[in-house]
């Protein structure tokens, strides 16, 4: 499952790739030309400190934000400028930063909204409750009243059940206790086993390096280093704390 990083992947078209993406909030330039590939069947971890532009990269990738320049390619096809909902309906599923759930909707209602991907509610419920039995007990509970970990499970379940080709995960660990984070990344590893390509964005680098095939570090709106998790781990401390 884990292709060697050194092996040439040139011939294969990555499922998701960003080419020279620049983006800005109003006047604030955030991305200064990001190049990133997510090859098929791999877990790519995008790491970096606060404000490096990780979340923005993901927003551009999933279509929520327009790039000022550059291209977004899905399976080799240019989808720059396509709206997020259209990409979502075509198998590019995103679990956004923080809590990817609708807090005022019940667990079941959250799954109802997930049916826009084209699946039947019954199928989605089956997958979701199968993966996270705790959600089944809580299906009538309002999502916002659940614990942070449970909310994140719901978000993941929603993403999984819609049978994606590519899964984009933004700061899965935000605001969660270490044990819960570990559990969630266990699930990520399982998902990766089934062949779904995953792009994980994570500020807390060590949690994610264990499951990643490829890691990249972002600094000041650019990808500064890319390589195997081991190679990247060595550079982390200096990137974060400037040690």
């Amino acid at each position: 499952m884990n292709p060697s990083i050194d092996a040439p992947v040139v011939e294969e078209i990555p499922l998701l790739s960003l080419r020279g993406v620049r983006a800005a909030y109003g006047n604030i330039d955030v991305l200064h030309g990001v190049d990133l590939d997510v090859p098929k069947g791999t877990v790519v971890a995008l790491l970096g400190p606060n404000g490096a532009g990780k979340s923005t990269t993901l927003k551009v990738a999933c279509g929520l934000m327009a790039a000022k320049a550059g291209k977004v390619l899905v399976a080799g096809r240019d989808v720059t400028g396509v709206r997020a909902e259209e990409l979502a309906r075509r198998g590019l599923v995103t679990i956004p930063e923080g809590k990817g759930v609708f807090p005022n909707l019940t667990v079941r209602e959250n799954l109802i909204v997930a049916t826009y991907g084209g699946q039947k509610l019954a199928d989605i419920e089956e997958v979701a409750y199968g993966r996270f039995p705790r959600l089944k007990e809580r299906r009538q509970q309002v999502a916002g009243t659940m614990s942070g970990g449970e909310q994140q499970m719901l978000a993941m379940a929603r993403g999984l059940a819609s049978n994606p080709a590519i899964l984009l995960l933004d700061e899965l660990s935000m605001g969660l206790a270490p044990l819960v984070v570990e559990e969630l990344y266990g699930v990520v590893a399982q998902i990766a086993q089934s062949g779904i390509s995953i792009l994980v964005i994570e500020q807390f680098a060590r949690t994610v390096l264990g499951v990643a095939d490829i890691a990249a570090i972002m600094l000041n709106g650019r990808v500064r280093a890319i390589g195997s998790p081991d190679e990247i781990e060595e550079e982390l401390s200096s990137a974060y704390l400037g040690g």
Partner: peptide
């Protein structure tokens, strides 16, 4: 925007 990410 979360709705959009759900395909709604």
């Amino acid at each position: 925007s979360l709705l959009q990410l759900n395909g709604g």
